[in-house]
Amino acid sequence: MIAILNAYRFRARLPINRAARVLVGLTAALLLALGWSAASGALGISPWGLLSGQADPLSVQVWWQLRLPRLLLGVAVGAMLAGSGAAMQGLFRNPLADPTLLGLASGAGLFVAVWIVLFQDSGAGSLYGQFAAGFLGALCVCLIVFGIAKRQGGGSAAVMTLLLAGLAINTLAGAGGGVLAFIASDEQLRQLSLWGMGTLTNALWRTTALALVLIAIALWLLMRSARELDLLQLGESTAHAAGLDAARLKRRVVVATSLGVGLCVALTGVIGFLGLLVPHCLRLWLGPGHRLLLPASMLGGALLLVVADTLARTVAAPAEIPVGLLTSLLGGPYFLYLLMRRNRAC
């Protein structure tokens, strides 16, 4: 792919810089992973068979109704988690920041757990309900965090307050989850713990289609913030003098992140380490500029989640490992290794 582009550049004299090469490379890798993932699973389905119409009806049914929405959801959730991780790290100017830090994920998680334990019936609306609960949870946390931040005004104290508010919300949500687990029935408890480990099995067209649209909007909002996130790295007062409206940037990034992450949590539970790990690794490779880091993180997150999910559903097929467990098992040790190896921030 890169070779083709390079050849094209010499012929057409187009300025194709490093950023374009990186993004094209990551996109190509993602497409390859999608092709591999589409073909593998408990039921082996050849993409060529599908295209040529020779596959049996069951395979076609499985592919269109189960596997394709799952692939797309993997791409969207991976991109959203890693992209919002990169944006949050930029916003807090801290490589260890993450949407879970603000309490968005746990707030969404608490609302979903409340839904599962207290309101869920076995009716057809249950998935939408879970979906809406996560959405609402993230939105509530977002509004609380915002109310606190607004009272603080600008300045560096505001960032610290945001982090502390996130800590409090995480603790509160953890306690709430404990209470819910205590009163839940065995069946609900099993559902809660499976969902809590993070899995893409809930991918169905009726929820995935809406999620894709909303996540695309959130990703677009983050992409628009790239240049401003770069400026913010100068510190708030210096960045203001350099032309940054920090309040607007914060608003946009926090809203986009909470909507996107709330959605992801509602659909898939908590899939750990993508938001932390992917931007961190890519920053080591590409440098801290957000105009490249944000889209690269989105592609990288999508790639990683698609690969991890394919492994999760094939390694022990027909049984399935929750993909959140897999990403945490792979990502956690690597992240600790990075922390130990590097003696300076990022």
Binding site: Q89, P95, Q233, T238, G287, P288, A345, C346
Partner: peptide
């Protein structure tokens, strides 16, 4: 203010 990231 220490820049949080590794700019050149």
């Amino acid at each position: 203010e220490l820049p949080g990231f590794d700019w050149q």
